[in-house]
């Protein structure tokens, strides 16, 4: 057998133990935090779990070296990107279902917590910024790094999100 081909073939026969082990360690350390972050993005526990699972599979398949220090940001960015993709796909499916007269899609119960409801009503980009800023206590720079956008974008998103939340919560307190 051509040694070069044999090496390549054997190279894919077994998943790299070290990569899986390392991912397993990160899973132990980060899973709960990532699950909460995904939940804050989606507002749906089941969708959050699927999202994080997809993210770990994506991280494994990414075939690139990820340092432990950068894992947290990279994982969150993967979750945001997957959520964006899924949002488009689910949106298309929902439109197809509505067109077919079956508008039943994953639908979580309407939240009764008014602040929470206002947060979940934010556009997904703004919600991601708010979650990272207020729950994860990240700076604007760290939020920008995590989302893969500029600091200016984060500032703009945060400004819009806070204006929306003030209006929503202000209207509630007035009513």
């Amino acid at each position: 057998m051509n040694p070069a081909i044999a090496e390549r073939t054997i190279g894919v026969l077994e998943p790299s133990k070290s990569r899986i082990d390392r991912l397993g360690e990160w899973f132990s350390a980060e899973y709960t935090g990532l699950l909460r972050f995904a939940y804050f993005l989606t507002g749906d526990p089941a969708a959050a779990e699927d999202l994080v699972q997809d993210a770990f599979v994506r991280l494994y398949r990414a075939d690139r070296h990820i340092e432990a220090a950068g894992f947290r940001a990279y994982a969150r960015r993967t979750i945001v990107n997957l959520h964006r993709t899924r949002f488009r796909r689910v949106g298309a499916e929902r439109r197809a279902l509505i067109a077919s007269g079956s508008p039943e899609e994953h639908r979580s119960p309407e939240p009764t917590d008014h602040v929470w409801r206002a947060i979940l009503a934010l556009p997904k980009g703004q919600r991601a910024c708010v979650a990272l800023r207020f729950y994860e206590d990240l700076s604007e720079q760290e939020t920008a790094l995590t989302l893969g956008v500029s600091t200016g974008t984060v500032k703009k998103q945060m400004h819009r999100a806070m204006r929306t939340l003030r209006e929503a919560l202000g209207e509630r307190s007035e009513s």
Partner: peptide
């Protein structure tokens, strides 16, 4: 208010025992 809302809803999701096996 926003920070407290996030904290209140932390427990809406919990780590499932078989999650890593699935992955």
């Amino acid at each position: 208010e926003i920070k407290k809302a996030f904290t209140r809803h932390e427990s809406d999701v919990r780590s499932r025992p078989g999650a890593w096996s699935d992955i």
